[in-house]
Amino acid sequence: MKYSKLFALLFLATSLMMFVACGESTSDSGGEQDSTLNTDTTSVSENKNVPGILYSLPAPVDIASVLMDHPGAKFEGEMLNSPKNSTKYNTNKSLALNLGIYTADLSYAGFFEQQQITTEYMTVTKELAEKLGIANIIDPAKIEMINAKKLSKEAMQKLISETFMNTDAYLKENGRQELMTMILVGGWVEAQYLATRLSKSSLTENPDLVKRILEQSLTLELMLMLINDSKDNENINALQPELMKIKLAYDNINQAEPEQEKYTAFCNVIKDIRTGMTE
């Protein structure tokens, strides 16, 4: 009798564990405008049995290509976070944020087919990943491939994207999604930093780029939803005030008719937060 109760208890406990492992988040959301792509206006009923919501925040390689894929974009290597700084990062938080930052730098260099810099940043991301216990994610042969021959922009992006997916997979497999959240936040802040620097904090220097920078409020919206759902994690929770500063700076700007003063303030917020992450 005692044993049957014990087994029932164990069954319940393990069932609960399986449920928790499969689910990621179950919060609701709202607030986006209608799409111009609508082909049907049928209403979808609320999902009754949702084991998980996944926030698929863009990887740095995706963000870099969204921001840089226009004729006015160019490569300026001095803006990147120096690989020499990598020795400064020793906590999980600083390692994860800067792994994201270096991945954004790597994606930016790859986008402009900067062979040597891409190799250098691939190596530093490998080092940081290993410090975080993410082993064998970056195949040394891939680094060698970039180093040995000139790859096209697309080939570089595919290689970086696949490497990032391996990191994503590894962290999911090992139940360390909070690190991926920090990597994505770091990558997004860096991509915004690079873009605002390229715009020279001016509305008129490169209006197309400014438009793309302001459109990134969309990603920030999802990022805040994800962070709100991960409040239990101290490191992730600590990022919320920083991201809220960016949100406020975004909200101050009238996207249809941005004012220079407010755009400069926005660029400064991005710069301060990026400095806080890299120093």
Binding site: K48, V50, P51, I53, L54, P60, V61, K172
Partner: peptide, 27 residues
């Protein structure tokens, strides 16, 4: 080009899954 994210979960028949993702103009 894969967007760099791996959205996957083990699901059972009768389950639903929502993936939230930003999409950008002109792409």
């Amino acid at each position: 080009i894969p967007d760099g994210r791996l959205n996957s979960l083990p699901l059972s028949q009768g389950d639903n899954l929502d993936v939230y993702k930003p999409f950008f103009r002109g792409r």
